[in-house]
Amino acid sequence: MKISRMSAIALTIAMGICGGSVAGAQGLTVNASGVKTVKLSDRVSKNQFVWVSNAPLENMKGTAEGVSGTLTLDPRNLGTIRGTIGATVSTMKSGNAMRDSHIQSAQWLDGAKYPLLSFTIGSVSGIKVTGNSATGTATGKFTMHGVTKSLSVPFKITYLDESAETRKRAPGDLVMISATFDVALADYNVSGAQGTIGSKVGEKIQVTAQLFGSTGL
C-alpha cells in the first residue's frame, strides 16, 4: 500500500516534469517573452531568396532581393509564428542581364503583371529547440505568377536578445530565419519558352530564403 502510494506520487511528479518539458518544448531559451512583431530589414543583414535551377543543359544560380515582410511570434511559443514575406520579381538576378530580362518577361514570371512572390504562414509544427535556435515546418500559402498553392517549408530560426552587439545592426531583438524549399514551375503556370523547361531550366527550382528582422524597427 505504502509502495503503491509512493509509486503514484513518483508517477505524478514524472508526469509533471514531462508535461512541463512538452509545454516548454516550443520555447527558445531567451530573455524575451510575449508576442513580438519582427520587421524584416536589410539593416540587420541582407534579406534574400537564393534560387538554383539544375537542368541537363545548364545550371543557374540567382537571387531575389527586395524582400519585405512582418512576422509576429512569441519566442517562448514558436507555434505562434505568423506573417507574410514577399520578394519583388524585378530584383531577380542570375548574373546575365539578358536572362534577367527573360525572367521578367510574360513567358516566365511576368514581373509587370505579378510583381511579388509571397509566402503567408498559416501554421507551424514540428518545432525542435536548441538554446536560442529552433527548427520546424511552416505551412502556408505561396503565391507566384498569380497562382497560390499550399506549401510546407522546413525552417530554422535564431533569436538574439538585444545587446550591445546587436544594437550595432538595429535596435530591438534580432531574428534570423532560413528556409529551403522547392517550387515546381508547372504548379504556378510558368511555361517558359518552348522546350526550355526540363532542358535549360529545371522543372523544380530550389529556393533558400535568408530572412533577418528586428523587433525594434
Binding site: S45, K46, V50, K93, G95, T158, L160, R169, L174, Q210
Partner: peptide
C-alpha cells in the same frame, strides 16, 4: 555569386 559570411548569425549570403 560570392559567399559572404555574417559573423553575428554565422549565415552565408550571396553577393554579386
Amino acid at each position: 555569386q560570392v559567399d559572404v559570411v555574417d559573423p553575428l548569425f554565422g549565415t552565408t549570403t550571396k553577393e554579386w
